[in-house]
Design a protein around this nucleic acid. Structure first.
Lengths: 215, 215
DNA sequence: TCTTTGCTCGAACATCCGTTCTATAAAAGA
DNA sequence: TCTTTTATAGAACGGATGTTCGAGCAAAGA
């Protein structure tokens, strides 16, 4: 794929700004005026290229039928994240059941903007019970956004089940030679070392949300 | 104001669904077909009522110029919070200037759902710089949502400027007889006591958002 | 040099679409 | 009963709008 011409970049920027300002997409002639182009056919020509390149979708014969696919976070839709349970020190975190994936089916949901989940699949939320995760700078009542994965990259924050200790903990995980280093988010605290077969990754921590009580 | 007729409810629901599905608003004739109405003038008639009632905004002479103001829960209640600066230990937090209130004017904004701000006015965000607020379970890089107030209720978490120490700190504030108790969020840590004239409330902490670095 | 390709321009066409006008009818008020 | 209000319906006007066509032009390739 070729790189976009300045004119095409300008068209995309204009469409985005127009949608934000107006609440509906521009017409071809709006783009003509907004981008200083002298003919509608030029816009049509470039829109076809942009559609081909995957930047937008056009709906034929439909006025203002331009759908921006690469929207800025400000316009992306929000995500309903199901709060499927709690997370505490001595209990494995609940495994998301198939029916709780549908946010509407879950008892409680949390609504977040998509720039938090960054479009990830399989994101769910847990409510923190107790103060056992203070070393991860996570307090009682905080809400943790997790992605359901079994493996994480080095340095990522994960919900880790320690089999021997029968304990779940939130740490940055580093797989090192023959051992696993679990590093608290609080840099003032010491890491924990354990064996690879003692750790079970239960999810990747996407975000932490702490809401202060009451008005 | 009268209650909406079933037909008007249906029109609003249809417009919402149409926007979600298509990415652009419907035409009057789309509504005619989608709601089983037999004339465009009926739609126009009801749209005028709905605009009068504040449910939507119409842009005259503009095709698909319907802007839904009271969107369904999935699209409603989204707030752009301006990120007006940073918060660090030794620096007073920046005072929101008049021109930064407008989220679009601010350099950087953060989008949150309204259940976080709970409809509060004057909410802005600060990015935490440094690890000086670890005792408040707040880490470097976290984002703090603050409400611009000069006074807080007992027990509320606030951004406090300690004049003598020339330091800003985040603590639960308790006004007691002749003194002020500043209680860290981390219940394992000891409170700080100071005099009332040494504290300056700079804002009420609404929420803390921590986003894990990238994927 | 001739051809091809990428891009732009102006004009025109057929349809789309917001708006308005008139008419009808049921319900409410006087 | 007569009038007003509310709601719906059909039709038409005129401008808006997506699309297409023919043409020009500069750069690249053969």
């Amino acid at each position: 794929m070729r790189t976009l011409s300045p004119r095409q970049k300008k068209i995309i920027d204009f469409i985005y700004q127009f949608v934000v300002d107006s609440g509906y997409p521009p017409t071809v002639r709006d783009i003509v005026n907004g981008c200083g182009i002298s003919s509608t056919s030029v816009v049509d020509y470039n829109l076809k290229i942009l559609e081909q390149a995957g930047y937008l979708r056009r709906h034929p014969e439909v006025s203002r039928g331009i759908e921006l696919l690469t929207l800025s976070p400000a316009l992306r839709y929000r995500v309903q994240v199901p709060i499927i349970g709690q997370i505490a020190a001595g209990v494995p975190i609940p495994v998301p059941a198939a029916d709780t994936w549908d946010a509407t089916a879950s008892a409680e949901t949390m609504e977040v903007t998509e720039d938090l989940t960054r479009g990830k699949e399989g994101v769910y939320a847990l409510k923190v019970k107790g103060t056992s995760m203070i070393d991860a700078l996570i307090n009682d009542g905080d809400i943790i956004l997790l992605q359901y994965v079994n493996r994480v990259e080095n340095g990522e924050m994960a919900a880790v089940w320690l089999k021997a200790e029968k304990e779940v903990t939130l740490k940055k995980v580093f797989f090192e030679a023959g051992r696993v280093r679990l590093q608290p988010a609080n840099s003032q605290m010491r890491p924990i070392y354990t064996t690879p077969d003692n750790v079970e990754i239960q999810g990747r921590v996407i975000a932490v949300i702490r809401q202060m009580p009451g008005h």
